[in-house]
Every structure is written in structure tokens, then in C-alpha cells.
């Protein structure tokens, strides 16, 4: 008898938990959710924290090219003011010295004062989610390791949660974005309510006719989904011209 009561109790909890979770997911995945309001992004009291995820090879090249173009835009109204993001965190795979070098070059180009570079830009590394030619069997383990590292990066230590997560398609980015969703699901340390960790995904310029795997996984999860070829536009996918 006791077993039957226990079963009923469990089922009831489960039946309540499922719709509650779905509702919660709907709330946190709604792009119209609160945004981090920054009045005067130059102040140190309310730093604007931008987190950029680099993959390797083509992903890094496209991300850096896009940012180079944005901060050097001739039209002032379209130019990204790099210094207004007073905290910048760059994420790369462990041992990716080429990406680290690109970050250094970009920061030197985009910031005018040496002090701004050293204090405001931070480079962190995570273990690769999947190395090239890595057997599929060991991917769950390496992905989990990568995810734990992502938790450590996103959870506030010296810096609060990032305001914006900007990424394109490497596996690391997908894992980091899902980690941020998990944190927001449980509103860990109040990260969801003040509109933290808004996610901007830019599909690779190399994807002309169909989305990448990362793109397909993230399309309904991120707040903004930008594509770079007109034929990919529609639904949540925004086309704003070529960005690289």
C-alpha cells in the first residue's frame, strides 16, 4: 500500500514539474525578456561586460574580422565603441595559441590606452569540447569537462555575469550558451532577473544555404540569431547583410 501512495505522490510531483519547467523555459528563452539597462556605459559603477567566444581556425578568423570591421566602421553611427564595453572576457580552447595571439592583436588595435587593455580584457581558456579527429565515443566526457569550465567562467568571481555573450559556431560556444541557459533556468545568483547573459549568435559566413549544426542547436535558444546570407533569413533569423 505504502508503495502505491509513494508512486502516486511521485507521479503528481512529476506532472506538476513538467509544465512548470516548460513554462520556465518559455520565460527564459523569450528574447523579449529584460535587458541589462546601462545608462552611460562608461561608468565603472555599472561596468558593461562583454564575453566573446572564439573557436579555432575559421571561427576565430570570422569573429575577429567581424569585430575589426565593426570598430573601424567609417560611419560613426555604425561604429562599435570598444571602450564602452568596460569588461571584456575572451574564451578560447586550451592550447589555442593562434586565437590568443589574434585577441592580443585585436585588443592592441581597438583600445587606445595600454591600461585599458590590461585591466579590461581577460583571456580565459576551456578544455576543447571536441578535438579534430577525436573519436565520437569520448565526446560526452570532454563536453562535460568543457561545460564545467564554462560554469566556472560564467559564475561571478571578480566580474559579474556577462551582459552579452557574443559567439559564432564552435562547439565551445554551443556548450557555453547552454550553460548560460541552465544558470538562468535556476536564476543562479539572480542572473536571469536583471537581464544578464543575453546571447548574440552569428552564423558563419560560410553557411550559405543551410545552418550549421551549432546554428540548428542554438536557433531557438539565443536572443539574437544573425545570418549572413539573405536566403537563410526568416523566423528568428535576422539578415543584416554580410558582417565579416
Amino acid at each position: 500500500m505504502a508503495f502505491r501512495y509513494l508512486l502516486i505522490a511521485l507521479l503528481t510531483v512529476l506532472l506538476l514539474a513538467i509544465p512548470a519547467s516548460i513554462y520556465r523555459l518559455k520565460v527564459i528563452l523569450d528574447p523579449k525578456r529584460p535587458k541589462p539597462v546601462r545608462n552611460g556605459r562608461h561608468g565603472d559603477e555599472k561596468p558593461a561586460h562583454l564575453l566573446i567566444v572564439l573557436g579555432s581556425g575559421g571561427h576565430t578568423a570570422e569573429m575577429i574580422a567581424m569585430l575589426e570591421r565593426a570598430v573601424n566602421e567609417k560611419d560613426e553611427r555604425l561604429r562599435l565603441d570598444w571602450n564602452s564595453y568596460t569588461q571584456r572576457t575572451w574564451v578560447t580552447g586550451t592550447g589555442d595559441t593562434i586565437s590568443a595571439q589574434r585577441v592580443k592583436e585585436f585588443e592592441e588595435m581597438a583600445t587606445t590606452l595600454p591600461a585599458e587593455r590590461s585591466h579590461k580584457a581577460l583571456l580565459v581558456t576551456v578544455p576543447r569540447a571536441r578535438a579534430i579527429h577525436q573519436p565520437l565515443l569520448t565526446t560526452p566526457y570532454s563536453s562535460l569537462r568543457c561545460m564545467l569550465a564554462c560554469f566556472a567562467i560564467l559564475l561571478p568571481s571578480e566580474r559579474d555575469f556577462p551582459d552579452i555573450i557574443l559567439c559564432n559556431g564552435p562547439a565551445i560556444a554551443t556548450i557555453l550558451v547552454f550553460t548560460s541557459v541552465l544558470l538562468r533556468f535556476f536564476d543562479v545568483r539572480g542572473c536571469h532577473s536583471p537581464g544578464k547573459m543575453r546571447t548574440v549568435y552569428v552564423e558563419s559566413w560560410a553557411r550559405v544555404k543551410k545552418l550549421s549544426l551549432s546554428g540548428m542547436l542554438l536557433e531557438t535558444v539565443v536572443d539574437r540569431f544573425l545570418v549572413q546570407w539573405e536566403q537563410l533569413e526568416g523566423g528568428r533569423r535576422e539578415y543584416l547583410g554580410v558582417l565579416v
Binding site: K35, P36, V37, R38, R41, A48, L50, M66, L67, R69, A70, E73, R77, L78, R79, L80, D81, D163, I164, L166, G195, R198, V200, V202, D223, R224, L226, E238, Y239, L240, G241, V242, L243, V244
Partner: peptide, 30 residues
Amino acid sequence: WPPVNSGTHRQAKGLKGVMDEEMGEEELRI
């Protein structure tokens, strides 16, 4: 390169426009 944007309004805001919107600033109108 890059291509000159063909004058369509929706293309005008670029990455900066999107990031400003995400930071909760007013929509950029150009």
C-alpha cells in the same frame, strides 16, 4: 570587400545596432 550595403534600411544597423539593442539602449535608427 566588404560589399557596400545596398541601401536597405534593415541592413543599416550592423553589429553595433544589435549589440546596442541587447544592452537595452534605444533602437538605432539610421
